[in-house]
């Protein structure tokens, strides 16, 4: 018998297989955040290892957001060719279609996170393994939500690919900047901090910073988990609805 877990595994392994068969694409994707880190980190003021301590979890969250928001881009093509339709006719549970695809985007993300951390170790970066692992769980939850929303966006823009990319790019950067990934929000004006307070990614980023440092028993961990779970639940709700009503 199938369950949500086995269905998710079916979708996940189907999605991952082409990547595993040609790992070159994954390697290219992994270099990207390193370039970002190499060019941006030197601009950070103050002590270098303290700056890395603050900056590295943010970069990991950023690449995670980028990957998850791309979930729908593979789907766009599969909607056009007909393979998405074929998946919809199978008894696969609808949430499994969303979760499996989003999780596939997270696997390269885990490898990316490991690579970023490894590269930063010689420059004085230190992290807590348990905290980092819990941090990955929080990010996985967040990514499932973002992935499901990206999937929904692809369904909505199935005959007009430009719509997907326009919305994805337009939404991505404000969310990123309002989460304090690249620069701290503390010094910003009140209106900006108010906007940031409504941004779930902001709580995820705060949680990641604390978790990677090993501050596990903090309120930030709870708010981060709640924000990630909330985004996941919202994304799955919207995504499953979109699948049911999409023509």
């Amino acid at each position: 018998m199938t369950s949500l877990v086995t269905d998710t595994r079916t979708v996940f392994s189907r999605e991952l297989r082409p990547t595993l068969r040609s790992p070159f694409t994954m390697i290219i994707a992994m270099v990207q955040p390193l370039v970002f880190l190499g060019l941006f980190a030197p601009l950070l003021p103050g002590d270098r290892s303290a700056a890395l301590q603050w900056f590295v979890p943010g970069i990991i969250v950023m690449s995670c957001l980028f990957s998850a928001s791309m979930t729908g881009s593979n789907l766009l093509f599969e909607i056009q060719t007909g393979s998405h339709e074929r998946m919809l006719v199978t008894p696969l549970r609808r949430p499994a279609l969303l979760i499996g695809r989003a999780l596939k985007e997270i696997v390269p993300m885990v490898a990316q996170a490991a690579l970023i951390v490894l590269v930063c170790l010689p420059f004085g970066y230190r992290f807590h393994l348990g905290g980092a692992l819990l941090g990955l769980v929080v990010m996985a939850g967040f990514s499932i939500g973002v992935g499901a929303l990206s999937y929904t966006l692809a369904l909505a823009s199935k005959n007009q690919e430009w719509l997907f990319w326009t919305v994805q790019q337009t939404v991505l950067f404000p969310i990123l900047l309002l989460a304090g990934v690249l620069l701290p929000l503390d010094g910003g004006p009140g209106w900006l901090r108010t906007l940031a307070a409504w941004n779930p990614l902001r709580y995820v980023v705060d949680a990641e910073r604390a978790l990677f440092d090993g501050d596990i028993w903090q309120a930030t961990t709870v708010t981060g988990l709640v924000a990630a779970a909330g985004v996941a639940a919202f994304g799955l709700f919207v995504g499953v609805r979109a699948m049911r009503t999409s023509t």
Binding site: T10, S13, P18, T81, G82, E85, T90
Partner: peptide
Amino acid sequence: QRIGYIGQGNGAGHSQRGRDELLSQGRAYG
């Protein structure tokens, strides 16, 4: 669970291998 459907487009993903898709499809039906 009980029906098969062959649509107008290509059911197999273009970046996949045929046999892999058949396996995924079988798994999808449990």
